[in-house]
Amino acid sequence: MKELYELLKDRFRLSDFSQKQPVQAWLKVPSDQAVALITHLRDIHGFSHLVMLTCVDWIEQGKFQLTYILHNYHDHKDLGVKVYIDRESASMESIHHLWEQARTYQRELYEMFGISFPGSPGLTDPFILEGWDDMPVMRRDFDTKAYSETHYSHRPREIHEPEEHMKQRMYPED
């Protein structure tokens, strides 16, 4: 995997290569070169399978980390491509023209993190949360407990101390 990284480094502005297993490696690429790199990996280097597209909210740095994991069926190797985008007005190029199923991932990321993928079909259709009108729920500044307390009613908790309970049950007249 290191050879592949050295090979790609001439062409793209890559950084932060790490490999913890023989079949799995990670690298980082600027967001303007990400789709070009993924297309290159798919068409030239045989990473023909999109395993997943997911997101991490680094709220302290004000960044979203998009992770594209690609798989190569010939030598069964995984390559994770990390892309950092700004948290404010988060937007990223769509890859639905490379893999059709990417539109579902992008639809999910739009709903859960509020990341826009211009041109992705059906991006704003409700995915899980139908009729959601608050902020995207997987952003770390969304307070799920406060939302739950203000929007849903809770069953009040009854506590029975064992000593009192048995006393009531066995000696009710005392």
């Binding site: 899980i128 729920v137 799920t144 739950s148 849903y152 809770h154 069953r155 908790r157």
Partner: peptide, 19 residues
């Protein structure tokens, strides 16, 4: 279904089905 269970603080799960 009775009191929310482990989803007691979930934004997307109701806590009392009897309402």
């Amino acid at each position: 279904a009775i009191n929310g269970g482990m989803y007691w603080d979930s934004y997307n799960t109701i806590k009392r089905i009897d309402e």
